[in-house]
């Protein structure tokens, strides 16, 4: 029982429980907090699989970026926080059924395949190899992603601009602007 088996099993448990709460917890804020648990568990699994750069990138981008954005959004719409409602079993029934069927079917397929040829992960540092991959075969994708980043940035700001008006000063300026 190597230590890493223990760690991987712990990550599975933590990630599964956290994902369960993200889906079913009545209060959105606790769902967001449990999302942190599943993201950190996935980062731990990346480490156990030898993808060290990915584990750190996942922590920086997901936990340090996306979750901050999610928490800002949840804090903004605080009315949901006060209304602790469970969306009703009826509402959860169909999606849960659909997800359970897909899960059972795919698990059966995965287990029916033979996984004998698996190899051990070789724990080489991956950040340099990923750099060469980003510069080599994936160079075009690398530039394409930056265009998507730019369009996402400008699009998000344009969409959000009306909501970001500073009420007081802008109204004064507009009111004075006309006469």
């Amino acid at each position: 029982m190597a230590v890493s088996d223990l760690f991987v099993a712990f990550c599975f448990l933590l990630g599964g429980a956290a994902a369960f709460f993200t889906a079913f917890h009545p209060n959105i804020l606790y769902a967001a907090i449990s999302l942190i648990g599943s993201l950190v568990a996935v980062a731990g699994l990346y480490g156990a699989l030898g993808a060290d750069f990915l584990a750190a990138a996942q922590l920086i981008i997901y936990v340090g970026g996306i979750l901050i954005v999610i928490l800002f959004a949840v804090m903004m719409s605080e009315d949901i926080y006060k209304r602790r409602f469970f969306e009703g079993a009826k509402k959860y029934f169909l999606p849960a059924l659909a997800a359970a069927i897909t899960f059972a079917g795919l698990v059966k397929i995965t287990l029916s395949a033979d996984w004998s040829g698996a190899t051990k992960p070789d724990f080489e540092p991956t950040s340099r190899a990923m750099g060469w991959a980003l510069v080599g075969p994936y160079a075009l994708v690398f530039q394409y992603v930056v265009v998507v980043l730019l369009s996402g940035l400008i699009g998000a700001v344009i969409i959000a601009r009306p909501a970001l008006k500073m009420k007081k000063i802008d109204e004064d300026l507009e009111r004075l602007g006309e006469d």
Binding site: A55, A56, A57, L59, I60, G64, L67, I68
Partner: peptide
């Protein structure tokens, strides 16, 4: 170290 720094802000 930067990755863990982002945990602090959370």
């Amino acid at each position: 170290a930067m990755a863990l720094g982002s945990l602090v802000s959370l």
